[in-house]
Design a protein around this nucleic acid. Sequence first.
DNA 1: ACTAATTTGTACGTATGTATT
DNA 2: CAATACATACGTACAAATTAG
Lengths: 250, 250
Amino acid sequence: MDIGDDRDQLTVQRQNGVALWRQIADRIRTSIANGEYDEAGKVPAEFVLAAQFGVNRHTVRSALQALAQEGIVRSVQGRGTLIMRKERINFPISKRTRFSQGVGDQAREKQSVLLRSAVEEASTEVAARLKIAVGSQVVRMETLGKADKRPVSRATSWFPADRFGGIAEAYEKTGSITAAYREQGLTDYIRETTEVTAVHAENADLADLALSPGAIVLVARALNTDMDGVPVQFSITRFPADIVQLTIET
Amino acid sequence: MDIGDDRDQLTVQRQNGVALWRQIADRIRTSIANGEYDEAGKVPAEFVLAAQFGVNRHTVRSALQALAQEGIVRSVQGRGTLIMRKERINFPISKRTRFSQGVGDQAREKQSVLLRSAVEEASTEVAARLKIAVGSQVVRMETLGKADKRPVSRATSWFPADRFGGIAEAYEKTGSITAAYREQGLTDYIRETTEVTAVHAENADLADLALSPGAIVLVARALNTDMDGVPVQFSITRFPADIVQLTIET
DNA sequence: ACTAATTTGTACGTATGTATT
DNA sequence: CAATACATACGTACAAATTAG
């Protein structure tokens, strides 16, 4: 609320396991996404940021370097630190949500690719969610959602193999979960529940979601059922929290 | 899924601004909340964790020390590191959600206290959300939700002052937003939208939510309207991500 | 009661990262 | 681009408490 005043309210924590430059980089990234620097088109001068955060200018420079590495800003001598990318993808969640496909509402150029698929035995969690026996055959599908060529979601989905044995092939052919379902004889389905938590990015996230280490990942566990309430899909989707926002339409 | 195997799959990131001990502390905290160590009632031995994460035993010790500071574990010489607290509060979000009060479904002993309240001029964001003019008078209320004496949510809410000028007093008297609304002449309201993001904890979070620095905070921006669709409350609620999960019932 | 194995606690040394001046 | 101070991480070794037999 009270961001950007004269005093040094933008507090950062010292010596607690998270380096100052990382905290500052996270804050600036969020500020950019929130459009706080939209008027100028660039972030405040390094010495201004240093004063706001109450740190040395070198520390701010480390933060800006990290953001430049991510392609979010670009520092130009004499001009300042220009904002190159300012995104915040919005993922709506509703009864009709199909977001394991990686659908972003306002994403300009969206794309979903199948990374891997396999038939495996249901783990404890998957079996409990899909209400099948532990060890039952399930199809696991891993998909990556992109918006404007940037990865914005990484989903692992499980389907009961007895009913949706060919879902992966159908998905690869059609590029759509909904269309793949149709091929497998399911015409409609609804999003039953979605559980949301947040964790620090893991190794797999860094690679797939192109994150810098220490980033925050939103984790959504979702269950889709057919119109009779029978579970058809359980999925765990991971979103980069710095550029993704989940909107719940109740 | 595949946690606890022989190899060192539990990957952590080196030299990226987040200390290894913090990453490991976060992972262990999550594992405890997920009930992965329930059988033993304690976490694996330090040298086992060190092997799993591929770090030195000292680094694991730093992580466990941080968790001990939070009251989650307690290390006892010769016995091991015992799990003292294992919580994960679930916040349901639906059309009828009233979670700015800090309502947890399965929380045993829940409580909501009013921290501060004031009348102020609406900022750009608040005005846009409440569909009123920038600078209009609004009541700001800050509340802290507790479950079993542990803070689990911190909400800042704004109400149009012309309609709900006495909401803070009514809330303090009744201890319930719904009851306070009734006193102000509003009998029913619905949760219109909820937007969820996640950020690193800020200074205020550390104090109010009793978090250790570097922790992750879930941020929910929510809008309540009356039955005519007129906005009556905009709130920003912050949850400690390590022990809170949002469940969206669509 | 004793011993061995297991597990945490403590200490020292070294190297590198972080942040300020 | 220093020089300095402190935090982080590793390696090794041994002490102290608990548990298993």
